[in-house]
């Protein structure tokens, strides 16, 4: 999933300071799972903001709503009849959802309520870690199912570097060395000989370096 984290409340307050009527818009997908922008977080944030502005003696209309997805046209359409009631939307979706909402409703400012962090997993409740950087050309078959692009601080394809110490990365003793994980995994798969195959120079044009990306599927186009 896409993992996000709510922005500091002070930053959110600054974003909506000039607006009278604000819709806090959650999303029922990834941000719900990572507890940053689902229905529950929308409610908690709305209460905190109402309390803040009340204490400041400011009159603000803060409403709550959570869509099934903000990255899909059909769910965003559900806002169509109501959008003009708001001076702004504070979206708690990921960066994609925030932008898609803004694209849909040109006349309404849409502000981010979260920082979008990475594509990752829930290791345990309250602890999410990165697994993928969407480089566009998956190499997991060659690396024992562990990604050197997202999990090595230097994204080395022929690691580990000299800074790997007792299984940990040189930049942070809490962080696993991706190449230690790869080697351990290759060993348990009985594929350690694969380590000696030189990884070819990567074509990064499928990554962000090639410019904004799209996927076209004629077979499913309507």
């Amino acid at each position: 999933m896409i993992v996000a984290e709510q922005k500091p409340i002070q930053e959110i307050i600054e974003e909506i300071r000039g607006d009278h009527s604000v819709l806090i818009l959650g999303c029922n997908e990834c941000v719900t799972v990572c507890e940053a922008g689902g229905k529950k977080e929308v409610a908690v944030l709305a209460s905190a903001l109402r309390m803040h502005f009340m204490q400041q003696g400011e009159q603000k209309q803060i409403e709550e709503r959570t869509l099934e997805r903000q990255c899909d046209q059909e769910y965003l359409e559900e806002l169509r009849d109501d959008i003009d009631r708001y001076d702004s939307v504070l979206s708690l979706a990921c960066g994609a959802g925030i932008q898609f909402t803004a694209e849909k409703y040109h006349a309404t400012p849409v502000y981010p309520g979260v920082n979008t962090k990475f594509i990752g997993v829930t290791e345990e409740r309250g602890y999410w870690t990165e697994r993928c950087q969407a480089c566009g050309q998956c190499v997991l078959a060659q690396t024992g199912g562990i990604c050197p692009v997202s999990r090595c601080a230097k994204r080395l394809f022929n690691g580990p570097c000299g800074g790997s110490t007792q299984g940990k990365c040189e930049i942070n003793p809490e962080l696993d060395c991706a190449w230690q994980l790869i080697i351990d995994r290759l060993k348990s798969l009985n594929q350690l000989e694969a380590y000696e195959v030189l990884a070819p120079i990567k074509d990064w044009s499928t990554d962000r370096d090639g410019g904004p990306r799209n996927v076209v599927r004629e077979d499913v186009e309507s």
Binding site: P160, T165, Q166, Q180, I183, D184, L198
Partner: peptide
């Protein structure tokens, strides 16, 4: 001297 020691020789071979 870096870890894991067992791949230090294979790494040089690479």
């Amino acid at each position: 001297f870096a870890d894991p020691f067992e791949i230090r020789v294979p790494r040089l071979a690479k």
